[in-house]
């Protein structure tokens, strides 16, 4: 069954080199260096290149040459999103601008004082937005899988400083479920990606981009069981130094039974993801066989 294996790419030395370039020269030299790294991944990271090539070729119906070019662009944009994250989180001078579309919806969720679930996907760069939402009257927690190399994590944290956002790490002992519950009970917002699952997780099959794919049931079950308001949130890069963040209107399904509720939220979420991916196809960052 296609499932994420729980490990991201990259080595600590690579991150150190990029951070040094950022500190000395700024974003543009880092982006220039990135082009060579991108080419390396395109040529030598066969498994992920094949997956992303097929994503462009089969899901977006691009010809082979266009699909190869788009694969290069995809790797490059992923690298840029990682660089951008470090720049913004560590306060390195930059020219980034942002549109916060639907910010009023997040204010509204916070004002309801019931907690809130912000569902996102591995497209674009939502995490940056959480560092910009300082005037939202609720703490934002981000649910992550702790698959990152510990050395990379520690190095990035040493560069960016103490993270203002609270992270809830998914663990085998299920402690993350209780932490999510506690956060929601404290009227906090919990942001979590709802497009990846590990082997053994319960999933539901839904069509996206014309073919069936499995989505984890967990995030949607959280929303329906804990009866919290939900918004779908995405952060998409629209040009070299401009991000556009989207927060949907609050989803409410008070007239649905529990299991129907999970299914409906999932359907609406997948529709939202599909709309974004059709508009920003290069910013799909699931490097495994996502479709059946």
């Amino acid at each position: 069954m296609p499932a994420w294996q729980g490990k991201s790419k990259g080595k600590p030395l690579g991150y150190k080199i990029f951070v040094s370039v950022l500190k000395i020269g700024g974003v543009r030299p880092a982006y220039f260096l990135l082009r060579f790294v991108t080419l390396y991944y395109l040529l030598f990271s066969f498994k992920s290149t094949k997956v992303i090539f097929n994503y462009f070729h089969k899901r977006h119906n691009y010809g082979a040459i266009k699909a190869v070019y788009k694969t290069y662009q995809n790797y490059n944009l992923l690298g840029q999103s990682l660089i951008d994250k470090v720049v913004i989180m560590s306060g390195i001078p930059n020219k980034f601008t942002f549109d916060l579309d639907g910010i009023e919806n997040l204010h509204q969720i916070a004002s309801l004082q019931k907690g809130g679930l912000l569902l996102t996907a591995h497209i674009g760069n939502w995490e940056i937005a959480t560092h910009l939402l300082n005037d939202i009257d609720a703490r934002i927690n981000i649910v992550i899988f702790d698959g990152e190399d510990q050395d990379i994590k520690e190095y990035i944290e040493s560069v960016t400083g103490k993270k203002p956002t609270n992270f809830i790490v998914i663990k085998n002992d299920m402690s993350h479920i209780f932490k999510i519950n506690e956060a929601l009970s404290n009227n906090e917002l919990v942001c979590m990606p709802a497009d990846r699952f590990m082997e053994g997780n319960k999933t539901v099959t839904i069509k996206i981009l014309g073919a069936e794919a499995k989505f984890p049931l967990g995030p949607f079950a959280l929303a329906s069981r804990f009866k919290v308001p939900v918004s779908f949130v995405f952060g998409m890069k629209e040009s070299t130094f401009h991000y556009h963040f989207f927060a949907s209107e609050i989803k409410e399904y008070s007239d649905l039974e529990r299991d129907d509720l999970s299914q409906q939220i999932m359907t609406d979420f997948v529709d939202s993801v599909e709309i974004k991916v059709k508009k920003y196809p290069e910013q799909w960052y699931n490097y495994y066989s996502f479709w059946q």
Binding site: I177, F178, N181, G200, K202, R225
Partner: peptide, 27 residues
């Protein structure tokens, strides 16, 4: 129990008893 069942467990405890489940409780 899988992860989804823990969600149900939390909801059912808090619906039936007058206390909130804390993350460290289940250790």
């Amino acid at each position: 129990l899988d992860s989804l069942d823990y969600i149900d467990l939390v909801v059912v405890i808090e619906s039936n008893f007058p206390f909130k489940v804390k993350p460290e409780d289940f250790v």
